[in-house]
Design a protein around this nucleic acid. Structure first.
Length: 487
RNA sequence: CGGGGUUUAGUUCAGCCCGGUAGAAUGCCUGCUUUGGGAGCAGGAGGCCGCAGGUUCGAAUCCUGCAACCCCGACCA
């Protein structure tokens, strides 16, 4: 285990990279742009999966799995879709190697009839499949989710935030009516927002993307946007209303009650391992990771303290009891009985790994019937009596979850500005979210991006309608939109 | 794709300018002492010095080429 040497305030991106490695979450692999997610990092991802999967199932969805490869011809069927992804596709052209003078080379005789695209997203292969599944309105709605890996050949990558291959889920739904598909799109946005705020403890702004930022092939892209500690925004999830674009591209029609042939309406929605990046950047500090209790693979760690063998026996005995009692309450507990490390080392290690609550128990505690409880978020320590310890810990965990969220919310509030002049805008957009008027044109959006590197993150839902003047052009505007520099 | 950097022990790096056959810290192994905030001492293991050529009696070091990775941009539903 390494020290967390780079301070958050000195070099945010260096601090982030260091933290990911030191907390044992992930590391760079031998393949450019691809990471190895290590067991501890993967355990956190699994917790996210469980929480999300449960919510998907509760809202009527089922899981399925579609191929990794997409025939090029499928991929190119929806014009704006292919345009959006064309420049970042991994393409499989051959299926065999051969030995030439002791060197393995691609066998030119094994060229594929049709190239295969490694999926950057699965709309096309799925809609090609849906054609066979949907005939009547009775087959609708179709509510399917897939947990998968996808590949997007990005020019620049960052651990978790943007990797060439990443893990995600993608929901693909089919509906009989436009209204139902829109409702689904927005419902899943709510699911994401609920997950982000109540599990990740990251407050998000729900909104809709401008045309420029919209998903390739969508009529509307809804999103949740979070603000990281350095004042940069992170898109944490998207939900797309696809209209009939993919149904038309893949000729997916159904017969309505009125016996009419109609194209199917669609939505798709996804979140990825990028959420790991959000989690890290939103809460962690110079001591390491800070995990919200509802997502921590280990919620409570018990560290025994002793000198003699006799003390060890007694302390371990007492620790076992606490361990069992906490487990019985359904908590995820680790009793760190390693005799190869001293308590101080363990304290530092579990802090680095973000375990929300630490219980230390030693000879003094045995005498007084107490333990020392330390919370990761505030680093406060207190001696508490063993009486009703389980409920105290449960209460503390709830408190920590709430506090972490509140801290993130306060931080966002502090970094959110309302600007009415260009000078103010230029200055504040370096610091966080800015609500400002925009004339609604792509040209203005582009100019602002060129001048400040800030983009319109979204047009917040339930936005207040108020007349004003565009921050750049002075042209009339009916509402403020949300600007920020983004990851 | 531009700009910068890196490549030597498991890891982080020094050594290179000025060529002489490999170092530190940390981690790892053994033993003893330790254990309420990253332990101490003693002993030990561990390297095709990114790859391929070249110069030289001799190359981690000089020269040429290549490659990979990282960082900053550009790009990014």
């Amino acid at each position: 285990m390494e020290n967390q040497k780079i301070k958050r305030s000195d070099d945010y991106s260096g601090w982030y990279n260091n933290l990911v490695k030191n907390a044992d979450l992930a590391e760079h692999s031998a393949v450019k742009g691809c990471m190895v997610i290590k067991p501890y990092g993967y355990a956190i991802w699994e917790k996210m999966q469980q929480e999300l999967d449960r919510r998907f199932k509760e809202t009527g969805h089922v899981n399925a799995y579609f191929p990794l490869f997409i025939p090029k011809s499928f991929f190119t069927k929806e014009a704006s879709h292919v345009e959006g992804f064309a420049t970042e596709c991994a393409v499989v052209t051959h299926y065999r190697l051969k030995n030439v003078d002791g060197e393995m080379v691609v066998d030119p005789d094994a060229k594929l009839e049709e190239e295969l695209i490694v999926r950057p997203t699965s709309e096309t292969i799925i809609w090609n499949t849906y054609k066979g599944w949907i005939q009547s309105y009775r087959d609708l709605p179709l509510l399917v989710n897939q947990w998968a890996n996808v590949v997007r050949w990005e020019m620049r990558t960052r651990l978790f935030l943007r990797t060439t291959e990443f893990l995600w889920q993608e929901g693909h739904t089919a509906h009989a009516t436009e209204a139902e598909a829109v409702e689904e799109t927005r419902k899943m946005l709510e699911v994401y927002a609920d997950f982000a705020e109540n599990i990740l403890a990251v407050p998000v702004i729900k909104g809709v993307k401008t045309e420029t930022e919209r998903f390739a092939g969508a009529l509307d892209t809804y999103c949740i946007e979070g603000l990281m500690q350095d004042g940069k925004a992170l898109q944490m999830g998207t939900s797309h209303f696809l209209g009939q674009n993919f149904a038309k591209a893949f000729d997916v029609k159904f017969v309505s009650k009125e016996n009419k042939q109609e194209f199917v309406w669609a939505s798709s929605w996804g979140v990825s391992t990028r959420l790991m990046g959000a989690l890290i950047m939103a809460h962690s500090d110079d001591e390491g990771l800070v995990l919200p209790p509802r997502l921590a693979p280990i919620q409570v760690v018990i560290v025994p303290i002793y000198r003699s063998d006799e003390e060890q026996t007694k302390v371990l005995e007492a620790g076992d009891k606490i361990f069992a009692a906490l487990k019985a309450k359904g908590l995820s507990v680790k009793f760190d009985t390693r005799d190869t490390h001293k308590p101080g080392f363990k304290f530092a290690e579990w802090e680095l790994k973000g375990v929300p609550v630490r219980i230390a128990i030693g000879p003094r505690d045995l005498e007084n019937q107490t333990v020392e409880i330390a919370r990761r978020d505030t680093k406060e320590k207190q001696l508490v009596s063993l009486t009703d310890l389980e409920n105290k810990v449960i209460h503390l965990l709830d408190n920590i979850q709430e506090n972490i969220y509140q801290k993130a919310l306060d931080s966002r509030t502090e970094k959110t500005y309302i600007c009415d002049t260009w000078d103010d805008f230029e200055q504040k957009v370096e610091l966080g979210f800015v609500h400002a008027h925009w004339d609604g044109t792509a040209e203005t959006e582009k100019k602002i991006k060129e001048m400040t590197k800030a983009t319109i993150r979204c047009i917040p839902l339930n936005n207040v309608q108020e007349s004003g003047k565009c921050i750049l052009t002075g042209n009339p505007s009916t509402q403020r939109v949300l600007f920020a520099k983004a990851y």
